[in-house]
């Protein structure tokens, strides 16, 4: 099977280029296996990967124009030659390895932990099954970055717009019955950039390998702002 892979080594002084590889395939082969086969052919090739089963979120890449998690992408579904590039809009460190610093900074900015006004109890803070259900579709995010790096608003303003991943996480804490900092969280999201750069383009929903829906979460945040305002 034919692959065209983005190659860039800043130390070589060469410009980025696409390199062709021919790979022996096997039944059930995932894109990550193909990248490993390329690595076996050419050890100068660099990409990130770890768990191999869609849990760690390390091997997000751009395949034939769409962001995908390599380890859960069967190559049988891909059109030849398979074009593999690094995430769009991110500074390339080498080959498919990109600098995700801004992405993590945005996640950090939403303060992704439970905040309590009341003193923390000795035991766990209990939650009704209905309240727990509100976190479904939110807590599953593995932070692979497929969504944020496929979002045009994030391409345009990565330093100011939080991006779909951080906004999904922001809603995950706003929706949590145990969190007691809703007003601060909403105040933080105010302004034209952090939340309101989202124009519901929905690329995030299209590419999320876990089938999550950041656009819907963003809609919930806006709804909550509206409820608090009236």
């Amino acid at each position: 099977m034919k692959f065209r892979v983005y190659r860039y080594d800043p130390e070589s002084g060469q410009k980025p280029h696409m390199q062709d590889y021919d790979i022996e395939t096997f039944r059930g082969m995932m894109l990550r296996d193909a990248l490993k086969a390329i690595k076996a052919q050419d050890e100068t090739f660099a990409f990130r990967h770890s768990c191999g089963e869609g849990v760690c979120g390390s091997d997000g890449v751009n395949v034939n124009g769409t962001n995908k998690l390599a380890c859960v992408t069967p190559i049988a579904d891909l059109k030849e030659p398979v074009e593999v590039r690094p995430f769009p809009g991110r500074p390339v460190i080498r080959d498919l390895v990109v600098d995700m610093t801004q992405f993590y900074e945005q996640y950090k900015a939403i303060e992704p932990w439970l905040k309590r006004k009341e003193p923390t109890p000795e035991q766990e803070i209990l939650q009704s099954p209905a309240d727990r259900d509100k976190l479904d579709g939110l807590y599953e995010c593995i932070m692979c970055g497929c969504c944020s790096t496929f979002c045009p608003s994030f391409w345009w303003n990565p330093e100011k717009f939080l991006g779909p991943q951080a906004l999904l996480s922001a809603w995950r804490f706003l929706a949590d019955s145990r969190d007691q900092a809703k007003d601060e969280r909403l105040d933080f999201l105010e302004g034209p950039y952090k939340l309101f750069r989202c124009h519901s383009i929905m690329n995030c929903v299209e590419v999320c390998p876990k089938g999550l829906n950041p656009t819907k979460a963003i809609g919930h945040i806006k709804e909550l702002m509206l409820k608090k305002a009236v």
Partner: peptide, 13 residues
């Protein structure tokens, strides 16, 4: 609750 005109209010308008 103070929401400025730049983000939330612009969206509501």
């Amino acid at each position: 609750m103070s929401r400025q005109a730049s983000g939330f209010r612009a969206w509501v308008y």
